[in-house]
């Protein structure tokens, strides 16, 4: 039973923010989703202070062993989330982590206070891949911005604050160290890699927004190296993600220093990927390895 920031979890596999909508999935699959929930904790899609419609289509483009997305964080905003979504997410059989993002410290503080106040919420993930409207800098790309944000948010709650690191920096470990000094409880990485594609026929950008973020197995080696350097630099637990599709992949992330792993894009291909990765991971652990040959016998 892994223990993460004081939260005990049934296994070490959670979902990556924005890649599994438990409310929509329950409408599609019914209560079978709850009986066999694929993740040991549920991370919400990132919510923002005000509602957002998201970007104009086209929003996704398949790439070799991955995809580029520019979804644009569609969400109901803080009030809509608390009133409509949170009561439904509270029915899930696992602890709830809410991902939040804002473009200034006061707005971030409002989100964290309101979300942390709800007993259904076990932890908060800070999506810092956004500009600070006051400085113009992307918070998660500047160690000083990250540290200042954490210093502003830390006094607001005793609940775990997880900083979701962006991979689009030369030195992610420096940002992780700043998050730790600011008072974060954990980090998660990687978010998507900045990427673009063109339609070879029209020669226009493939996505309406012009660019997006790359995810899936294509990013896995990059994610592993960033995780490795981050884990070596801080004393906090890390949630590793980026192209995990099997227990063997998850074992690599644990070897690189992850306390937990998150499954993102693979859930699009296999809605129960989380359960599958957790089960496969059991057999790739040093203790579990002895069990595997018995399974292979017939």
């Amino acid at each position: 039973m892994p223990e993460f920031c004081g939260i005990s979890l049934a296994h070490p596999v959670i979902n990556a923010s924005g890649t599994f909508d438990a409310i929509a999935a329950r409408r599609v699959y019914g209560d079978a989703l709850l009986a066999d929930f694929p993740f040991s904790a549920f991370v919400s899609k990132t919510i923002t202070p005000e509602p957002r419609a998201g970007n104009a289509p086209r929003r996704i483009w398949e790439t070799p062993a991955g995809m580029i997305n520019s979804i644009g964080l569609p969400n109901k905003g803080l009030e809509g989330f608390l009133a409509e979504d949170l009561p439904q997410l509270a029915e899930l059989p696992v602890p709830l982590i809410v991902s939040v993002m804002a473009t200034g410290r006061p707005e971030f503080a409002r989100l964290v206070e309101a979300v942390a106040d709800r007993e259904e919420v076990a932890a908060i993930e800070l999506n810092v891949s956004c500009p600070n409207v006051h400085s113009g800098l992307i918070v998660g790309e500047a160690p000083a911005e990250t540290e200042a944000l954490l210093e502003a948010l830390r006094p607001l709650t005793a609940k775990p604050l997880i900083v979701k690191l962006t991979p689009n920096v030369a030195d992610p470990a420096a940002v992780a160290v700043a998050a730790e000094s600011g008072g974060a409880d954990a980090v998660s990485l990687i978010n998507t890699l900045k990427a673009s594609a063109f339609d070879p026929l029209s020669r226009e950008p493939a996505l309406a927004a012009g660019h997006g973020g790359l995810s899936g197995p294509a990013v896995r080696p990059v994610a592993l190296q960033q995780l490795r350097s981050v884990a070596a630099a801080i004393g906090l637990p890390a949630i590793g993600m980026g192209g995990i599709g099997s227990g063997a992949d998850a074992a690599e992330f644990i070897a690189a220093g992850a306390a937990l792993v998150a499954v993102g894009t693979e859930s699009f291909r296999d809605p129960r990927a989380g359960s599958r990765v957790a089960a496969e991971l059991d057999f790739t652990s040093p203790q579990g390895a002895a069990v595997q040959p018995a399974l292979d016998l017939d």
């Binding site: 909508d21 599609v28 699959y29 289509p57 929003r59 996704i60 979804i71 859930s267 699009f268 809605p271």
Partner: peptide
Amino acid sequence: ESPMACGYGACFGCAVP
């Protein structure tokens, strides 16, 4: 039709205005 990654509401890729 729209581009679909998941088909069950997980990715928000299939947006239609």
